[in-house]
Structures are given as structure tokens and as C-alpha cells.
């Protein structure tokens, strides 16, 4: 298995130069029977998908799974620009819907959901206990920007609670929010349960009141044309993610099953 970020290819007179540079990264090294399955996955899936990729490689002799982990929007944009992905796992449904509309992916299946949690630095210096505390003026609150999925979810939570949240910063990604909380810059942030789980002792998680609503649903789909052997392999990876074993792995990283969402 290889994990890397993938850049976009440039066409035209620069192709030669780019090819020379790209030669160093070992793209498309499909020697002999070796097959590389390229999986584009939302960054929050890193831990779970690394484990699933190992499992998949064990089950399929000669297959290498290459994980490309980034923000869902970035990955979708790359697929729209023709990046050679075989599987795409998104952290939200609208992003996947864009690719479906463009006819770039097969039928998506929801495989996990994620819930927001309040993250506070160890020791909870601002004494945050409830969602209402986030609206207090002396609490330095950091949220995701409304433009990104975790931000949209945060807005939903705030609206549902009738709160007017005034964050000191609207971050680009949930990782940035978590980073500010871990560093103690922010007194609190809204992040996914899975992020709090992954951060270990660096942050403390506080459950939102009531039943877990305002969740993100994670859909997965194969990318590209049906029919060939690679598409078959891609489908088998999707099946693994949806299988009991896959669901168990995801649960281990804090994800909930898709049927938990209302």
C-alpha cells in the first residue's frame, strides 16, 4: 500500500518536463501481474482505510492499494480533472452528488456516518460543558468555515439549538480546527467524533446534547467505466468497506453505521 497526495497533470509543451519530474514518484509502476488500486478517500478516513487497505492487499495477491487522502472537495476536483482514481470515498453526500451528476462515478453507497462533538483542550480551561457555553463571549470558539462539510454541519447544530455562534476563526478543514484546540489557542471547537478519537489525549470530547443528529453521511463509489478487471477489483474494495468486517473497522475509529442516521 502506498499513501500519497496526487497532483494534477498538465498537458501541452510542459508534458515532457512534468513526465521527467513525475518519474521520480513511481506512478503507474505496474510490473508483471501487479495491479495498483487507487483509492481516493476523505482525510478523516485515514486510519480506518489504511487498515482496510492492508486487509484488502492480504486477500488479493499482487494487488497494491494506493490511498490518496485529502479533503473531499479537493479529491472530487481532481477526479473531475481526470485523475486516475478507482474508488472514491467522500465525507459528505453533496460532493459525491456532484460527481454522480457528471457521470464520473458508479452508484454511491453510504458506508458510515459521523457526529460532531465539542473538542476542548485537556483540562477544559474555559470550562465548557454544554453547547450553549460555546456562545459565551469569553470562549474562543473555532469552527469549520460554512463552505466546508464540517462547517455546514456546525451551522446546522447551531441553528437547531437556536444559538448565534461567533467563532474567532472559521477554518478550512476539521484538521485545522482540531489543531487550534490541541495547541490551546482555541477554548473549544466543533469537530467530528472520529477526530476526537484519533487525537487521543490531546483533546477532550464533549457530546452534544440529545440524540446524535446533524451527522455527515459518507458515501463510497467506484470511479470510471464498468466492465474491466480493475472495475471488478474496485467493486470488491467497496464491498469490503460495506461488509461487517469493514463496518467493524470503521466503528473502531469512531464512525457510526449509516443506518444510524435519521
Amino acid at each position: 500500500m502506498r499513501v500519497r497526495s496526487r497532483g494534477r497533470l498538465l498537458a501541452g509543451p510542459l508534458a515532457v518536463t512534468v513526465a521527467v519530474l513525475a518519474g521520480c514518484s513511481g506512478t503507474d509502476a505496474r510490473d508483471g501481474d501487479d495491479t495498483t488500486l487507487t483509492v481516493f478517500a476523505a482525510a478523516s478516513l485515514q486510519g480506518a482505510f489504511e487498515r482496510l487497505a492492508d486487509r484488502f492487499e492480504d486477500e488479493h495477491e499482487g494487488v497494491t492499494v494506493e490511498l490518496s487522502l485529502a479533503g473531499s472537495s479537493d479529491l472530487a476536483a481532481q477526479i473531475q480533472q481526470g485523475a486516475p482514481a478507482d474508488v472514491f470515498a467522500s465525507a459528505d453526500t453533496p460532493t459525491m452528488a456532484r460527481l454522480v451528476a457528471d457521470g464520473l462515478v458508479g452508484t454511491p453507497a453510504d458506508f458510515a456516518t459521523n457526529t460532531l462533538q465539542i473538542a476542548v483542550p485537556p483540562g477544559n480551561p474555559a470550562g465548557v460543558e454544554t453547547l450553549d457555553d460555546l456562545a459565551a463571549p469569553d470562549v474562543a470558539l473555532v469552527l469549520c468555515a460554512p463552505q466546508v462539510p464540517c462547517g455546514a454541519a456546525s451551522t446546522k447544530v447551531a441553528d437547531a439549538a437556536g444559538l448565534d455562534l461567533a467563532p474567532v476563526s472559521e477554518e478550512q478543514s476539521v484538521t485545522d480546527v482540531l489543531g487550534k484546540v490541541v495547541a490551546g489557542e482555541a477554548d473549544a471547537g466543533l469537530v467530528y467524533v472520529t477526530d476526537v478519537a484519533a487525537a487521543g489525549d490531546d483533546v477532550e470530547g464533549i457530546d452534544l446534547p440529545g440524540p446524535p443528529d446533524a451527522v455527515n453521511t459518507y458515501p463510497i463509489a467506484t470511479v470510471g467505466d464498468d466492465g474491466d478487471a480493475r472495475a471488478d477489483l474496485a467493486q470488491r474494495f467497496v464491498d469490503l468497506v460495506l461488509s461487517d468486517e469493514g463496518q467493524e473497522t470503521l466503528a473502531g475509529f469512531g464512525f457510526a453505521a449509516p443506518d444510524a442516521s435519521p
Binding site: 473555532v142 474567532v168 476563526s169 472559521e170 477554518e171 478550512q172 485545522d176 487550534k180 489557542e185
Partner: peptide, 9 residues
């Protein structure tokens, strides 16, 4: 900037 200062319009 994004790491240190944050992002608020």
C-alpha cells in the same frame, strides 16, 4: 497564516 492566525472574514 492559516496555521497561526486562523481564518475569519
Amino acid at each position: 497564516t492559516i496555521t497561526f492566525a486562523g481564518s475569519l472574514e
